[in-house]
């Protein structure tokens, strides 16, 4: 076998700290195609994670010393409290259940989960990615914001505005 070309096209220049590494075949320049905004995980990401950990752990400790987790009387199946309430994140559903057991307990939660799973297959256009509240996504964002707001309002009603027999009460009276 015979070597075709042993002479380097771009010979090393010992006066320079840089050199040509390799040649790549292509149809367009790759310069500027993807701006290199990458930084090293160590230390840039790790220091942020560490700071968040310290802040979260610190806040939890402060909360733990200031506020006691609730503990009522021992469970008694013969003395139901009135009203008996589910954990706060289910109080929106419990509020709906008070109107219709099937709709609030089954239909709406099922629809919510199915809709959440289908979202990325319905809305596939890659516009408005990577920015908060992109103008092009105003409709989708508005829809989702409304959904969150309705759930929040239902939870607030269930938590603060429902008294004995699930009657409407005003919390400050």
């Amino acid at each position: 076998m015979r070597e075709v070309n042993t002479k380097e096209v771009f010979p090393k220049n010992s006066n320079k700290t840089y050199g040509l590494m390799e040649l790549v075949k292509g149809t367009k320049p790759t310069v500027g195609l993807q701006p290199d905004d990458m930084v090293f995980t160590w230390p840039h990401l790790l220091i942020r994670e560490l700071v968040l950990f310290v802040v979260v752990a610190g806040l939890l400790l402060v909360a733990a010393f200031l506020f006691d987790a609730p503990l009522e009387e021992v469970a008694n199946p013969n003395h139901p409290p009135n009203p008996a309430k589910a954990p706060w994140y289910f109080l929106g559903l419990q509020e709906l259940v008070s109107y219709s057991a099937f709709a609030g307990g089954v239909l709406i939660p099922t629809l919510i989960v199915v809709a959440l799973i289908l979202i990325p297959f319905i809305d596939r256009k890659r516009i408005g990615v990577g920015v908060w509240f992109a103008k092009q996504r105003a409709f989708a964002n508005g829809l989702f914001f409304t959904f969150l707001l309705v759930m929040l309002v239902l939870i607030i009603i269930g938590t603060f505005f429902r008294g004995p027999n699930w009657d409407f009460v005003v919390p400050w009276e």
């Binding site: 021992v74 589910a86 954990p87 259940v97």
Partner: peptide
Amino acid sequence: SFTGYLLPWDQLAFWAITVGTSIASYAP
């Protein structure tokens, strides 16, 4: 969160789970 809610076995836990699980029974 829901399964942990029952473990203290106080009135809050007992009745929250009673209410929560009764919601499930509405499914056909």
